[in-house]
Design a protein around this nucleic acid. Sequence first.
DNA 1: CGCGCAATTGACTGCCCTCAAAAAGCGTGG
DNA 2: CCACGCTTTTTGAGGGCAGTCAATTGCGCG
Lengths: 252, 252
Amino acid sequence: MSESGLNKLLPSINIDQLRASCSACTMHHLCLPMGLGEPDMKKLDQIIGRRRKIPKHSLLFRSDEPFTNLYAIRLGHFKTFQLSPNGEEQITGFQMAGELLGMDAIGSEQHRCDAIALEDSEVCEIPYLRLEELFGHMPTLLHHFHRMMSQEITREQDVMLLLGTMRAEQRFAAFLVNLASRYAARGYAPYNFQLRMSREEIGNYLGLTIESISRLLSRFKKNGLLRVANREIEMLDPVRLKAMAAGTESCD
Amino acid sequence: MSESGLNKLLPSINIDQLRASCSACTMHHLCLPMGLGEPDMKKLDQIIGRRRKIPKHSLLFRSDEPFTNLYAIRLGHFKTFQLSPNGEEQITGFQMAGELLGMDAIGSEQHRCDAIALEDSEVCEIPYLRLEELFGHMPTLLHHFHRMMSQEITREQDVMLLLGTMRAEQRFAAFLVNLASRYAARGYAPYNFQLRMSREEIGNYLGLTIESISRLLSRFKKNGLLRVANREIEMLDPVRLKAMAAGTESCD
DNA sequence: CGCGCAATTGACTGCCCTCAAAAAGCGTGG
DNA sequence: CCACGCTTTTTGAGGGCAGTCAATTGCGCG
């Protein structure tokens, strides 16, 4: 059936808008429109810009670019990283569907990190100035936006704790447990997932080397904590992994 | 002259309000009211709660407490820290006058860290819900609040870079350079200041031990980078220290 | 002066990094 | 299908940076 034919049957619904609308998005319960009623969600829809496909390994934005949009991830995974003055790279986060990219750029009005898709992905462009205009009339939206920024702050504090106090084994366990809980929140099997990032990227994020990550994977496998096949992970003993992440247990 | 006598001479000015007002505060160009006109600043003043004195080493708020207020530091210094599940402490930041405490609590509606005064300090209590009500009518205030939250995100990203990629010497240089720039922004001599925190606290923040900090201080002193007397610091070679922080130079 | 705490210094250890080589994936093209 | 080259990952051996442990020194304060 052609699109125009469908439009005749359902004259009040525009297919393009349906595709583009927050209410039709599977992530709206986690994303910016969380908790909004239908009318508010429509207003938000109206300011949201293009829906962009970002192919694997391509750039969403680059550090020092002027900031105009936030990006809500509809589909896929990203990494964000910073370059130090002497050229060293630090991955500051891995983001997945329902999460917001670019909040760190509001303060300086230019991006402070690069964002790269780890797989073929899709984002919604959210023009920031228009979003701020909406806030005046939509306290619920504003409140949830503040929650999301605040959660980004606490997420980073958790990483500081990880990098500042934990040994390699604990860091890696915490990393896996964190992924599991985020997949659970999205309705995916928490203990079976594909790593979207390379060993090198994991190591960089955790302040370790690729060799350390590889050794940890082997150790966890040997101790019956994980099944590992390339990037496919199965957490065989989540309880023990959580205990390791909490620092109350250690493997051999 | 008595206060009431003064009030007769200047009947339109209330001394208490003067003391309590943002416009009279030396930090208003850095703090929440940055960029506000007189009328808006007055509205903000009206919602600001008590001005509280926080004695040295005492607690402003504690992790898991319900979140009701943000705190603007009027005077003094604080540290914030998190406890890991197994009891390890990680200092997530040192805050000084003009900076905001508690933004990490918005997301979960309870505090996520402890905040302790490093010296006798003063804060302004900002009831968060009333602040959000103001945002609807004061876009400038809202915008600057977002800038402050965003800057907190980038500050933490910088710490992640530090903890993830830098060697001890570079971390410590970066720490000192950061303090210098923040004192400069406040109109203080950037290269002469008192450390408000112990060696142990510095080490904790930087993911190092107290012994390492002590050794670094000795090394920097020996190489003519610093003059050190207890907690009194003089940066003798800021250029070189900045180069070390950037990772383009190293000391012996 | 003497006590207690904070900071310094030294000797040694160990975790993780570095360097290196082998193995495993993976896409391409014959 | 396999051969080939390239990249990623694994595994091993050895070294170094910062941690640990311990003793000493310095400083503030009653």
